[in-house]
């Protein structure tokens, strides 16, 4: 089922190439924003341009991977309102799995590859020491980030069972999380930093690992050991979000039909 859906996306080559390009361009313009800020301020949130590039590349890759798999949960509210969800609920496959496989967006690879390029280039340029621990962090951080963003997408999707018309509020934690994760957290006002660390763990995705890798000084309340928190936090988040999703589905009463 999944492979058929994936193949169908690349059959129309011209349109697929265009979509890939648009995703890459989107990622480049987001990067321009980081660049413009650091063009004006040589040190931004305690980081130099190269260090901020590590943050951006890492977060962009993690978000792109999560968006590819979970991004379409954005539109759960449409399925709820139109009653499409009923046809999915009667099938003998878990709802979440069906929604995810319905539309894995291969075009998001455009964003992932731009992020990967910036990540690798800036790591080389910053001359990050490649010892065992460093390598482990370089490889595990994007995966942990993907899991965290994935959980945020499911959380936002769950909220739509209650909010329906207010689905936009979920953007705060998904796209807001992406925005925060792509910037040096030292630049955030304290309340914003605390919210996006302890409630929505966006700063743990890229800022803390990047700072530890490149030797940037961490701001309060971060500690070097927190660079390894990504995976445990992702597991914890998935447990909570799983319960939330289940509560949401149970609340769903159908559209009659």
């Amino acid at each position: 089922m999944l492979s058929a859906r994936l193949r169908s996306q690349v059959v129309y080559r011209g349109s697929f190439a265009g979509d890939l390009l648009a995703q890459a361009l989107l990622s480049v313009t987001e990067f321009v924003e980081v660049y413009v800020l650091l063009h004006n301020a040589p040190v931004f949130g305690g980081m130099t341009l190269v260090q901020a590039c590590v943050v951006y590349g890492l977060s962009s890759m993690a978000f792109g991977l999560a968006d590819m798999v979970f991004g379409q949960l954005d539109t759960v509210n449409v399925a709820i309102r139109t009653g499409q969800l009923e046809t999915l609920l009667v099938r003998p496959v878990p709802l979440l799995l069906q929604l995810i496989t319905a539309d894995v967006q291969l075009r998001r690879l455009g964003r992932v590859s731009t992020g990967l390029l910036i990540y690798v280039w800036s790591l080389c340029y910053a001359q990050v020491p490649l010892d065992g621990a460093g390598l482990a962090l370089i490889v595990s951080a994007p995966l942990a980030g993907m899991l965290i963003f994935g959980a945020l997408f499911v959380a936002a999707g769950s909220l739509q069972f209650w909010l329906i018309d207010g689905a936009q509020a979920g953007n705060t934690i998904t796209y807001g999380g992406r925005y925060v994760a792509s910037m040096p957290a030292g630049a955030l006002l304290l309340p914003v930093r605390v919210f996006f660390t302890f409630v929505v763990p966006a700063t743990l995705v890229a800022y803390v690992p990047a700072a530890v890798l490149t030797g940037a000084e961490l701001v309060w309340p971060f500690q070097p050991a927190m660079a390894w928190l990504g995976l445990p936090v992702a597991v914890l988040l998935w447990a909570v979000v799983g319960l939330l999703w289940r509560a949401g589905v149970r609340r769903y009463t159908g559209a009659g039909g």
Binding site: L37, N40, G45, T172, G176, M183, L188
Partner: peptide
């Protein structure tokens, strides 16, 4: 959503001006 994005954007620009 607007308020949260506003706070994040204000943070970033203020940090840039300070930097």
């Amino acid at each position: 959503t607007n308020v949260v994005f506003g706070l994040v954007r204000a943070s970033l620009l203020l940090a840039a001006v300070a930097g």
